[in-house]
Amino acid sequence: MNINKIHHVAIICSDYEKSKDFYVNILGFRVINELFRKERNSYKLDLAVGEHGQIELFSFDNPPDRPSYPEARGLRHLAFEVEDIEKAVKELENKGVIVEAVRIDEITGKKFTFFSDPDKLPLELYEK
């Protein structure tokens, strides 16, 4: 087996329009494709993350809540690399996003911080 990279991350949201606005207009991800699946009453939105990554944003009727925050079994958080963390934090805060204080990774010495999407999915910014 020869795995090259992570192709995409799939996220299920509770409010499609609110999450679409967050990922497109606040985080700035480019829409690749948007599809409404009538038989499922479900949207699937493909978003470009940088040059190679993608997020698939799904809506489903009545998805269950995340069991606990932040240490639920499964995906712990999703991290995005940025060039300048202070600039990125300021941009998010100017758009009304609450961002935790910037910290230093004890192992790498790199700066990082956390914020949440509209469904409280923990998202991380990690400085390059």
Rank of each mutant, 00 (worst) to 15 (best):
N2P: 04
I6K: 06
A10D: 01
A10I: 04
A10N: 03
I11M: 04
I11Y: 03
C13L: 05
S14F: 02
D15Q: 08
D15A: 06
E17P: 00
E17L: 15
E17N: 15
K18V: 15
S19Y: 01
K20P: 00
V24K: 04
L27S: 12
G28Y: 10
R30P: 11
R30Y: 13
V31D: 01
I32F: 07
E39A: 05
R40Q: 15
N41S: 14
S42H: 02
S42Y: 02
V49I: 08
E51T: 09
E51S: 09
H52R: 11
E56S: 05
E56Q: 08
F58W: 15
F58K: 05
S59P: 00
D61K: 13
D61M: 10
D65T: 06
P67S: 11
S68W: 05
P70C: 08
P70F: 12
E71L: 13
L75C: 09
H77T: 04
A79H: 10
A79V: 05
E81V: 14
E81G: 10
V82L: 02
K87R: 09
V89T: 15
E91T: 03
E93D: 05
E93I: 00
G96F: 02
G96N: 00
I98S: 13
I98C: 14
V99N: 00
V99M: 00
E100T: 07
R103E: 15
D105N: 13
E106S: 09
T108I: 09
K110H: 12
K111H: 11
F112D: 05
F114E: 08
F114D: 07
D119F: 06
K120R: 12
K120A: 14
P122M: 04
L123C: 05
L123H: 06
L125I: 08
L125H: 08
Y126M: 04
E127R: 01
E127F: 00
E127G: 00
